[in-house]
């Protein structure tokens, strides 16, 4: 790689970033096209270890609805999304639950937790 174009997905601005190898930079890459500092972090992460937040649902018992929406509290490696989905398919929790409650701790050793994204009685 010498130069790479990508789109920052951190916010709806969707800045068009250019990533360039640069030995003078602390992290080895120079990012341009970003409108804020988060774009730099994203650009380098996307090259070194792309991560994504995962949102999905798990089964819930004794509630008015059949599914509880959940999310990761930190982004996890992109390559682990499907493995994480597989794990969530086998989980069934019991109502009531509160928004922010941990549903799976340290999911797949990523350091991220799966948390409830709403309360359900």
């Amino acid at each position: 790689m010498n130069k790479k174009e990508m789109i920052c997905i951190v916010c709806p601005m969707g800045c068009r970033l250019t990533l360039q190898e640069d030995v003078n930079e602390e992290k080895g890459y120079k990012v341009s096209g970003n409108q804020c500092h988060r774009g730099i972090e994203y650009g380098i992460m996307e090259q070194v270890n792309p991560t994504r937040a995962l949102t999905s649902t798990v089964k819930i018992k004794d509630s008015s609805l059949n599914r509880l929406p959940v999310r990761t509290d930190h982004p996890i490696p992109k390559a682990m999304l499907f493995e994480c989905m597989k794990l969530l398919n086998h989980i069934e929790i019991q109502a009531p639950i509160k928004m922010g409650d941990i549903v799976v701790e340290n999911v797949l050793n990523t350091g991220a937790n799966i948390i409830a994204s709403r309360s359900m009685a």
Binding site: A53, T55, R71, M99, S117, R118
Partner: peptide, 10 residues
Amino acid sequence: EELTGPEYAQ
């Protein structure tokens, strides 16, 4: 911060 729809609603 970046919330899900249900979190925003809640």
